[in-house]
Structure formats: structure tokens, C-alpha cells
Amino acid sequence: MNLWVYTFRRLLYVIPVLLGVCLIIYLLFNVVAGDPTHILLGKHATAKQMAELRHELGLDRHWFMQYLDLVKSAFTFDFGRSWSTKQLISSMISEGAIPSLTLTVPGFFISTICAVSLSLLVSFYRGGLFDKFTILICISLMSIPSLAYILFGQYFFAYKLGMFEISGYDFGFPHFIPYIQLPVLIWITLTIGPDLRFYRTVVLDEVYQDYVRTARAKGLGEKLILFKHVLKNAMIPIVTYVVIQIPFLILGALLIESFFGIPGLGGITLNAINSSDFPVIRAMTILSAVAYIIFGVITDILYTVVDPRVRLN
């Protein structure tokens, strides 16, 4: 079986998963969350007003039709309009995605590359002072809540020292660059601790394998052993960990975006939650589910590239 057939078959599995996810989302919003007309009209709404609104929102239709609408939106990305701003949700998403990605993609790349190379380095000096010191720093970084970094960064580096913009955003390259510097730095600080610890565990799992001893017995140098033999084996868990993070990059960083006034998807989601804007929340939920499923498929396909032992049948 070749890679294309495998990919196609793997994509077919997406359909039932997506249908199930849509069902759960439907139940969460329409059964658990209660009647949205109460939220929209307030306490003193008349029965007539409520009935009209229910009709307008399509809530009086058969539940199955509503479910089908939801499924349709997962495939067409047509999520209707926002209740509070009346904007098309799809255009809100495509506008918000750009600021989010300009923040998360650089942060993610720098953090991942630093964490993977540092993990190889600390594994090389495992048990030594450098290793212990790095782990100590990781744990300290992880122990401080993210809000502390944001507030400290904004107050000290941006306000006191004037090194960065305090908040705001400007569309278009390269205008956005001054605005994302501090947020990206904070993103890296937040993610490098857990990342490095995970990669270190992965690499240490490999360092004691028999094939490493064989490589030494062949006369290979430690650098080559680490960056060729060990890294390629460690790629299997690393790929999983990296790819599974990508959906979250699309959704942006909730806290960082709202504190820095970046009009990204994270901020949009947060606003929608605050104003009970159900269609927007639902759209973001569907979007993240779809992204998660798609990147799951990509992970599976990458396995076959990274690990020759994964058979395609």
C-alpha cells in the first residue's frame, strides 16, 4: 500500500469522527447550555418576543435539521453571523487568524528549536551541573503563573525600560513586528520549560539504548551519535508532541492576546465568551476540533516518514 492510499483511507476515518464531534458540540450548546433567548432578551422578555427570536435563530426547527446545519458548517466553514456584532463569523476568523499566527508561529518555532537542541545538550551532560541547572530553570519558569510574566514584562521591559511596545497591533508586514516582540518572548518563556523537560525525557530514553553503544563501538563521535542516531529515533515522540500543538497556534493565545490588545482569535473567543455570543464560541469550538483532527492525520502520515517500522497496512 502506498502513501497516497494510506492518506486517503486515513482521511475517510475523519468523517465519522467529525460527525461525532458535531453531535457532542450540538448537545453541549443546545441541551447543556440552555435556552439562549433568555440570555439575549434578558429577564423581562415576553413570550411573544422569545418565540420570535427563537424563530429568527432557527431554534424552533427540528433538532436533526439544526444538527445538520452544524455539520454543514464544519465542512463549509460558514458559521453564520455573530449575535453581538452581526459580522460574518468566517470573515472574523480569517481576519483574526493573521494577528494570532504572527504571534504564535514565531514563538512556537523558536521555542521548539531551542528546546530540542537544549534537550540534546543536557542529555549529553546528563547528571552534570549544566543538566541540573537547566532543569532547575525549567521548573522555576513553569512555576511562575503566566499572568506574572505578562504584567512584569509590560511594566518593566515595556513601560520602565521602553524596550517594547506596551500593547496594540498593526496589520501588514513589517508593521506588526514591534508589537509582537514582547508577546513572543513571553510565549517562549511560557512554553520552553515544559517542552524542554519533555524532550529531555525523550532523548534520555534513547541515549541508553544498545544502538548508541554500537555507534560508539564503531568509532563515531558523540556529536554525530547525538545529532544523527539519537535525534532520528527521538523524532518519533517529538513529531507527535509538536504536531499536536499546531491547532492551538491557530486558535491563538487567549491571555497574551487580550493583555496586549492583539485582535487575534484568542481575543475574539474571549470576547465571545464574555458576551455569550454562542455562534462565535461554537465556530471556534468546531474550528479547533477540525484542526485537531486534521493534524492528527498529519501526525499519522509523518510517522510513516520518520519511523520505518510503521507499516502502511
Binding site: 544502538y211 553503544r213 554500537t214 555507534a215 563501538a217 568509532g219 542516531h229 532520528k232 523524532m235 520505518p308
Partner: peptide, 21 residues
């Protein structure tokens, strides 16, 4: 010297080779 003048083979042929090469 290793692998060139003095070479070694090990007990576990299953794990002594690198699985991804």
C-alpha cells in the same frame, strides 16, 4: 581504533542496530 582496528559485536542483535537507518 574503535570499529577500525578493534571492533566489537554484542549480545543483542535485536537492539544493537539502529532501527531507523
Amino acid at each position: 581504533v574503535r570499529g577500525n582496528k578493534i571492533a566489537m559485536i554484542f549480545q543483542e542483535p535485536m537492539t544493537s542496530l539502529n532501527p531507523v537507518f
